[in-house]
Design a protein around this nucleic acid. Structure first.
Length: 893
RNA sequence: GGGUGAGUAGCUCAGCUGGUUAGAGCGCACGGUUCACAUCCGUGAGGUCGGGGGUUCGAGUCCCUCCUCGCCCA
C-alpha cells in the first residue's frame, strides 16, 4: 500500500495563513503578474469597510462574492485587479473616539480640534490592521500595494477637486434650510441617514384662538381647531393654514390667530397642501421645525422661528419653556394649555418617528445653514446610464427602485458638524465672502484678487458627509484627478458589488459623480447582495445574541466552509439565512475533496507521469462517463457564473465532485486500479481532479490550492492554482452513449442495493445475479468487476441472459434490464409479488399519463418535436418495463 | 398610500429562457469497522410547490386576485 503524504483530515488552520502569504509574496494578486498581464483588465473596487469596524457577515459575504469574481476572471486570463481600502467613517469613528475620551474623563471640546484629530488618527492606525487582516483571512485576493484610505492624501485631494468643481459649476451652495438634526450627535445628517419607525404616539387636538374673539364663541368663530403630534412646536408656529375650498374655515382666511400661551399673532392662510380630511382640517405651520411646513413657509413668505437649541432643549423663543428638554416642554405646554381651556382632546395615533440611523434618537427637523449639492443634473445622467443599459443592475428589479429614487431626488446635505472627515474647502473673508479652493494658498490668492489686498481667512469648520468621498471611490483610488497609468488602464472598473441597503447612499452617488467627473460610467455592472440573517431569518444583533461571528466560524470550520456557505446559500438581492449546520456541512465538503485527493495520490506510483487531458483512445466507459459529466459541469458552471448565478454554479460543482466523481467514478476506478492497465484510470483521476479543483478554486481557494500543490502536473502548468487556467469543455470528451451506458449501470447497482437492503442481505455477503439487459448487456458485461464491487456481487456468479425458470429469488426491473437475484429462502414470494405489483401500478400510471399526452393531437402538433419524441421514447421504455414486470409476476404466481 | 421580495419536504433553502416521475443540505428511520473519508458509505420515508381563477398541448415557473410575513419609499 502506498504511503499517504497527506494527513487524514484537512487542517485549514495551518494551510490558510501559509497559502495566503505565499500568494501575496509571489505577487499573484497583482494584475501585472496575471497569465496575460497585458490582457483585458477585470476590476472591482472594494466597498471600503469602516476602518475602525469589526468584521461581520456582511463583509464575509462581499469578500466571498467579489473574490469569487476576481479569481474566476484571473483564471480566465484577465488582468484582474481588486482595489482594496478602508473608509474613515466620519460619525462612527468620531463616536468611538469620543467614547474613549469620555472614559478618560475628557471631551473633544476640551482637547480641541487638533488634538482630537490626532486621537482619531491614532485610533484609525490602531484598528486598521485588524480589519485588513480579517479581510485577508477570508482569502481576499486584493492588490494590497494599491490599498487606499478615504482620508489619505490622494483621496483628500480628489475630494477637494470634486468639491471645487461642483462649486464652480454652481451645483454646491450654502443655504439656510431645514435639515435633519441629530441632537445626540450634534450634527446635521442627510435624508438617507434617517429611518422612520412606526411608533405609538398621540394626536393632540386643541383650540387656536382667533384674535379679537373669545374661545367661548366656538369653533370657526372664537377658535380654529387644530391637531398636531408635536405640541411643543406650537411655540414656533408662524401661521395656521386651511384648504382654500374648505367651507368650514374659508371665512377665517386672512384673519389672525394667536399662538397659545405666547399670544403671538400669526396669519391664517390657505394652501392646497392641507389635507381637509386629516385631523381637524386645519394645519399649524411651523417652518422652523417641519420640512413640509418649511416649504409652505417659503411659498407664503412666512417668518421662520427656531425654538430649539442644538441639544434639543428649547431656546428663548419658547418663552416660559426656554431651557426645557423638547419632551418635557411638550408635557408642560400641554398642561398649561389644558388649564387655559385650549385643549380639545387627545387620541392615540401611530406616528412615523424619524430616528437617527446611527444614534437611534429622534431626529429633529430644524433650520440651519448647511452646504448642499444640487444633485438634479447628475441624477439625470445617472438615470440615463442605467436606462440605456450602459450600467446594468443585478437583480434587475433594483433598477426600478434606483429610477424612483433618482427621479425624486432632493438636494443632498453634505456638511456635517463633526471634526473627523474632509474639512470643507471653503474659506471666508472678513465680510463672510466664500472662497472655495483646492488649498488655503489658492483661497488666499483668490481673496487677495477680490479684495485687492491680503486678508485673514477662516476655513469653514464643518466636514463633508462620509459618502461624499466614497462617491469618488472607483476613480479616486486609481489616481483621479491625475491622469495616472492606473486610471487609464483600469477605469472604468467592471463590477460594483455591494449590499442593496446602500444603493442610494453609495452606488447611485458613485454613478452620478463618476459620470460628472470622469465623463464615463464607473462600472458596467452593479451586483447587489442581501442581508445575512441568522438561521431563522432574524436580523443578527448583539443585543439579541444571535450574531454568528465570521471570525469564530473561521476558527471552527475554516474560511472555505464559510465562503462556500455564503456563496451557495444566497441568490442576488435576496437576504440569506446563515446556519452553523450548513457551514459544518461545507466543512465536510472540504474534507471530502481532501480525501478524494488522498485516494488519487495514494494510487499513483512513484514514477507516475501525468500527461494532461487523457487520450480518448485508451478510455473505457466509466472514464468516458466522468469526462462527459465533467464537460457538462464545466459548461454549466461557466455559463452560470457568467450570468452571476454563483450559487447554482457552486452547487453543480459540489454535486459533480461528491455525487459523481467521489461516489461513483472513484468507486468504479478501484477494481481497475488493481487491474493490468491502471494508467488510463490514473490519468483520468488526476485530470478530473485537477479540473474540479480549478472549478472550485474561486469558491474555496485554500483547500483547492493546498491540494493542487500536491497533485501531479504537466510541465507547462502554472506554479499555482490561483493563476491556473479556468477549465474548458473539450469536444473530444463528448461521449453521450458511453455516459448513458454508465448511467444504466448506476440504475442496476441501485436496484440491487435496494433489494439487498429490503431483504436484509448481510452487507458483506456477495451474491449472484442474472442480468437480462437487451441494450446495455454488453457494456455491463465489460464492467463486470465494477458491477460486482458496487453491488457486492460475486463476480464469478454474474451471468447474462433470461432469469432461470422456477428458481426462488427477487426479480428487479429497471428501465432496460431485468435482474434476477437467486436469494432462495430469503425471499418471501408474497412480499416479492406485492413489490412487483406496486411497481407495475406505478409504471402503468405513468404509461397512462404519457399516453394521454400523446393522444392529445394538440400536444403532438404544437409541442416541439424534441419534446414529443422524448415522450414517445418514454412511453416505449415504460411499456417494455411493464411487459417485463408482468412476466415476472406471472412467473411467481 | 405606492413599490417590491418571500411563502416549495420536519428545518434552512435551490429550481436558469414554462417541457419526463419537483431537488439539496440538515434532521428522521433502517443497515454498515467495503484497505480516501464515521467530517464517511448504502437504503428509505417525507411535498395536492400559500388559497382561488386564468393563459397554454403542457404551469412550482407566465397573468389576475386574495391571504400571511418582510423590506424600501412617501
Amino acid at each position: 500500500m502506498p504511503e499517504f503524504t497527506l494527513p487524514k483530515t484537512y487542517d485549514f488552520r495551518d494551510a490558510e495563513q501559509r497559502l495566503y502569504r505565499w500568494w501575496e509574496e509571489n505577487g499573484w494578486f497583482k494584475p501585472e503578474n496575471a497569465r496575460n498581464p497585458d490582457g483585458k483588465p477585470f476590476v472591482i473596487s472594494i466597498p471600503p469597510p469602516n476602518v475602525t469596524g469589526v468584521l461581520h457577515q456582511g463583509h464575509a459575504l462581499f469578500v466571498a462574492l467579489e473574490d469569487l469574481m476576481i479569481r474566476y476572471h484571473r483564471m480566465k486570463g484577465r488582468a484582474a485587479l481588486w482595489v482594496p481600502g478602508t473608509d474613515h467613517a466620519g460619525i462612527a469613528t468620531q463616536l468611538q473616539v469620543e467614547k474613549k475620551l469620555l472614559a478618560e474623563g475628557k471631551s473633544r471640546e476640551e482637547i480641541g480640534r487638533e488634538a482630537f484629530l490626532k486621537e482619531c488618527w491614532d485610533w484609525t492606525h490602531k484598528h486598521h490592521d485588524r480589519i485588513i487582516s480579517q479581510l485577508k483571512r477570508l482569502g481576499a485576493s486584493c492588490d494590497w500595494d494599491r490599498e487606499r484610505f478615504t482620508l489619505d492624501e490622494g483621496l483628500s485631494r480628489a475630494v477637494r477637486e470634486a468639491f471645487v468643481r461642483l462649486y464652480r459649476m454652481g451645483l454646491i451652495y450654502r443655504d439656510e434650510y431645514i435639515v435633519n438634526w441629530s441632537p445626540g450627535l450634534q450634527t446635521a445628517v442627510s435624508d438617507v441617514e434617517v429611518e422612520y419607525t412606526e411608533e405609538q404616539g398621540t394626536l393632540y387636538y386643541f383650540k387656536y384662538p382667533i384674535a379679537g374673539h373669545d374661545i367661548s364663541e366656538g369653533p370657526g368663530k372664537g377658535y380654529i381647531p387644530v391637531a398636531t403630534t408635536r405640541p411643543e412646536t406650537i411655540l414656533g408656529d408662524t401661521a395656521v393654514a386651511v384648504h382654500p375650498d374648505d367651507e368650514r374655515y374659508r371665512h377665517l382666511i386672512g384673519k389672525t390667530a394667536l399662538v397659545p400661551i405666547l399670544n403671538r399673532p400669526i396669519p391664517i392662510i390657505h394652501d392646497s397642501y392641507v389635507d381637509m380630511a386629516f385631523g381637524t382640517g386645519a394645519l399649524k405651520i411651523t417652518p422652523g421645525h417641519d420640512p413640509n411646513d418649511f416649504e409652505i413657509g417659503r411659498r407664503h413668505g412666512l417668518q421662520v422661528i427656531n425654538i430649539m437649541n442644538k441639544d434639543a432643549t428649547l431656546n428663548e423663543n419658547a418663552g416660559p419653556y426656554a431651557g426645557l428638554d423638547r419632551f418635557e416642554a411638550r408635557k408642560r405646554l400641554w398642561k398649561d394649555m389644558k388649564q387655559a381651556g385650549l385643549v380639545i382632546k387627545e387620541e392615540p395615533y401611530v406616528i412615523q418617528a424619524p430616528r437617527s440611523q446611527r444614534g437611534g434618537e429622534i431626529i429633529e427637523p430644524l433650520v440651519s445653514k448647511q452646504w448642499f449639492v444640487n444633485v438634479k443634473p447628475m441624477a439625470e445622467m445617472g438615470l440615463a446610464a442605467v436606462r440605456t443599459g450602459r450600467i446594468q443592475i443585478i437583480p434587475k428589479r433594483f433598477e426600478k427602485i434606483y429610477f424612483n429614487w433618482l427621479e425624486n431626488i432632493r438636494p443632498w446635505c453634505i456638511s456635517r458638524q463633526l471634526w473627523w472627515g474632509h474639512r470643507i474647502p471653503v474659506w471666508y473673508g472678513p465680510d463672510g465672502r466664500e472662497f472655495a479652493a483646492h488649498s488655503e494658498e489658492e483661497a488666499r490668492a483668490l481673496a487677495e484678487e477680490h479684495y485687492g489686498h491680503p486678508v485673514d481667512l477662516e476655513q469653514d469648520p464643518d466636514v463633508l458627509d462620509t459618502w461624499f468621498s466614497s462617491g469618488l471611490w472607483p476613480f479616486s483610488t486609481l489616481g483621479w484627478p491625475d491622469d495616472t497609468p492606473d486610471l487609464r488602464r483600469f477605469y472604468p472598473t467592471d463590477v460594483l458589488e455591494t449590499g442593496y441597503d446602500i444603493l442610494f447612499f453609495w452606488v447611485a452617488r458613485m454613478i452620478m459623480q463618476g459620470l460628472l467627473y470622469t465623463n464615463d460610467i464607473p462600472f458596467h455592472t452593479v451586483y447587489l447582495h442581501g442581508l445575512v440573517r441568522d438561521e431563522h431569518g432574524r436580523k443578527m444583533s448583539k443585543t439579541y445574541g444571535n450574531v454568528v461571528d465570521p471570525i469564530e466560524v473561521m476558527d471552527d470550520y475554516g474560511a472555505d466552509a464559510l465562503r462556500f456557505t455564503l456563496l451557495t446559500g444566497s441568490t442576488p438581492g435576496n437576504d440569506m439565512n446563515l446556519s452553523i449546520d450548513r457551514i459544518r456541512a461545507n466543512r465536510n465538503f472540504a474534507n471530502k475533496i481532501w480525501n478524494a485527493t488522498r485516494f488519487v495520490l495514494g494510487n499513483l506510483p512513484e514514477d507516475f507521469t501525468y500527461r494532461g487531458a487523457p487520450d480518448p483512445a485508451a478510455l473505457q466507459t466509466p472514464d468516458k462517463w466522468v469526462l462527459h459529466r465533467l464537460n457538462e459541469t464545466i459548461a454549466n458552471a461557466t455559463r452560470l457564473i457568467d450570468s452571476y448565478q454563483f450559487g447554482e454554479a457552486g452547487r453543480q460543482i459540489y454535486d459533480f465532485l461528491w455525487s459523481d466523481f467521489a461516489d461513483w467514478y472513484i468507486e468504479a476506478a478501484k477494481p481497475r486500479l488493481r487491474g493490468d492497465d491502471p494508467d488510463p484510470v490514473r490519468q483520468t483521476l488526476v485530470y478530473v481532479l485537477d479540473q474540479t479543483l480549478r472549478l472550485l478554486h474561486p469558491y474555496i481557494p485554500y483547500v483547492t490550492e493546498e491540494l493542487w500543490q500536491h497533485i501531479p502536473h504537466t510541465e507547462d502548468d502554472t506554479p499555482a492554482l490561483i493563476i491556473a487556467a479556468w477549465p474548458e469543455s473539450r469536444p473530444e470528451f463528448h461521449f453521450p452513449h458511453q455516459a448513458e451506458a454508465f448511467e444504466h449501470l448506476r440504475q442496476v447497482v441501485r436496484a440491487i442495493r435496494n433489494a439487498r437492503s429490503e431483504y436484509n442481505v448481510e452487507p458483506g455477503r456477495k451474491i449472484a445475479a442474472v442480468i437480462d439487459a437487451p441494450t446495455y448487456g454488453e457494456s455491463l458485461a465489460a464492467m463486470r468487476d465494477i458491477l460486482a464491487l458496487l453491488a457486492r456481487l460475486d463476480p464469478d456468479q454474474i451471468t447474462f441472459g433470461p432469469a432461470p425458470e422456477g428458481e426462488k429469488g427477487a426479480a428487479l426491473v429497471v428501465a432496460d434490464a431485468t435482474i434476477f437475484l437467486p436469494l432462495g429462502g430469503m425471499v418471501d414470494i408474497e412480499a416479492e409479488l406485492a413489490r412487483l405489483r406496486k411497481q407495475l401500478a406505478e409504471t402503468e400510471k405513468r404509461i397512462a399519463s404519457t399516453q394521454a399526452r400523446l393522444n392529445n393531437p394538440n400536444f403532438v402538433q404544437k409541442a416541439p418535436e424534441k419534446v414529443v419524441n422524448q415522450a414517445r421514447q418514454t412511453l416505449a421504455d415504460l411499456q417494455a418495463q411493464q411487459a417485463r414486470l408482468r412476466e415476472q409476476i406471472d412467473a411467481l404466481s
